[in-house]
Structures are given as C-alpha cells and as structure tokens.
Lab assay of single mutants.
Amino acid sequence: MQYKLVINGKTLKGETTTKAVDAETAEKAFKQYANDNGVDGVWTYDDATKTFTVTE
C-alpha cells in the first residue's frame, strides 16, 4: 500500500510518499525521515486516506 506524509514543519514543509506493508511500517519510515530532516512535532494519521501529518 502507498502512504503519504504531510510535513508542516517550522523550516520544512511538503509531502512525501512511501510504499509499506502496513501503517506501522510506514509510520516508522516517516518518523525516521522527519528525524533525519530535523522535524519534531505532533503526529496524526488518517486511515481513510492513508495519510500521516506531522506539525511542529
């Protein structure tokens, strides 16, 4: 399945996608991506759209 990440950071904004077997695996990949880019915020997930959002 394909999952999307929407980033609403202080210095980084945008979107990225990943393919993963489940939401938990996608979340780990997205959190690593956010961490690598210095984004630390509040996470939400919408199962209907398979979209994670992180807001600083």
Rank of each mutant, 00 (worst) to 15 (best):
T25V: 09
V42A: 09
T51D: 01
W43E: 00
L5K: 01
I7K: 00
A23M: 13
K19L: 15
A26K: 00
T49N: 09
T55L: 05
Y33C: 04
Q2E: 14
T55W: 10
V42E: 11
V39Q: 03
D46Y: 04
T17E: 08
K50N: 09
T17I: 10
T44E: 10
L5Q: 01
N37V: 14
E27S: 07
L5R: 00
F30W: 02
V39L: 11
Y45Q: 01
T44F: 09
V54A: 03
E24F: 10
G9R: 04
G38A: 05
N37R: 15
T44P: 00
T49L: 07
T11Y: 14
T53Q: 05
Y3T: 01
A29D: 07
E15V: 13
I7F: 06
A29W: 15
D36H: 08
A48N: 11
E56M: 06
W43Q: 01
E24L: 12
Q32F: 05
G38R: 07
I7H: 03
K19E: 14
W43D: 00
G41L: 03
K13M: 09
Q2I: 15
A29Q: 13
K28V: 10
T16V: 15
Y45I: 01
Y45W: 03
N37H: 15
V39M: 06
D22Q: 04
K31Q: 07
D40S: 13
Q2L: 15
V42S: 09
T25A: 14
Y45G: 00
T16E: 06
L12I: 14
T18D: 03
I7M: 07
E27T: 04
K13G: 07
D40H: 13
E27F: 15
I7W: 08
K19P: 06
E27V: 06
L12R: 10
D40G: 08
G38E: 07
T51I: 06
A26E: 00
V6G: 02
V42Y: 08
Q32Y: 05
Y45K: 01
K10G: 10
K50E: 03
Q2M: 15
Y33M: 05
N8W: 13
D22V: 03
K4H: 12
E15Y: 12
K31L: 08
D36T: 08
N37I: 15
T25I: 07
I7D: 01
G41E: 01
Y33W: 15
F30Y: 02
T55N: 06
N8H: 11
K13A: 09
T18P: 03
V42P: 04
A34L: 10
D47G: 08
N8I: 15
V54P: 00
L5G: 02
T55Y: 09
E56P: 09
G14R: 11
V54W: 02
K10R: 14
T16I: 15
T17C: 11
T49S: 12
T55R: 05
N35C: 12
T55M: 07
A26P: 00
K4R: 12
T53N: 05
I7P: 01
T44S: 12
V54Q: 00
L12T: 09
A26Y: 01
L12A: 08
G14S: 13
E27W: 14
T51M: 04
Q32V: 09
Y45D: 00
M1G: 12
D40P: 04
G9K: 05
K19G: 06
Y3K: 01
K50M: 10
T18M: 15
T25P: 02
T17N: 08
T17M: 12
Q32L: 09
D40V: 14
Y45L: 02
K10C: 13
E56R: 03
V39T: 03
A23C: 12
V54E: 00
K4D: 03
A20Q: 05
E27K: 12
G9F: 10
Y45R: 02
T17P: 02
K50W: 05
A26M: 01
T11S: 12
G41S: 02
K13E: 05
E24T: 11
N8V: 14
T49E: 06
Y3R: 01
T17D: 05
E15T: 14
T44H: 11
K13L: 08
K31T: 05
K4A: 06
M1N: 14
T53C: 06
G38W: 04
G41R: 01
K19M: 15
T17W: 15
F52H: 02
K19Y: 15
D46M: 04
T16A: 12
V6R: 06
E27A: 11
G9L: 15
N8T: 08
V54Y: 02
F30Q: 00
G9N: 05
V21I: 13
V21L: 13
K4P: 01
F52A: 00
K19W: 15
D47Q: 11
G41W: 07
V39Y: 06
E27H: 11
Y33R: 03
T18A: 08
I7G: 02
V6P: 00
G14M: 14
A20G: 04
V54G: 00
A34C: 14
T49Y: 05
D47S: 11
D22F: 04
E15P: 05
T53M: 08
K10D: 06
T49A: 07
G41H: 02
K31P: 00
D40N: 14
D36C: 09
F30V: 03
A26S: 02
D40Q: 12
D22L: 04
T51E: 04
D46F: 04
Y3I: 02
T53P: 00
N37L: 15
D22N: 12
M1C: 13
T55K: 05
V6M: 07
T25K: 06
T16F: 15
T25M: 12
V39W: 08
E27N: 05
T53L: 05
K13D: 05
L12D: 05
T18W: 05
Q32P: 01
E27G: 09
M1I: 15
E15Q: 11
K50Y: 11
D36S: 10
T18Q: 06
E27L: 15
Y33G: 01
E24K: 12
T11F: 14
A20W: 04
G41I: 01
L12Q: 10
T49K: 06
D47N: 08
A48R: 10
D47A: 13
G14A: 14
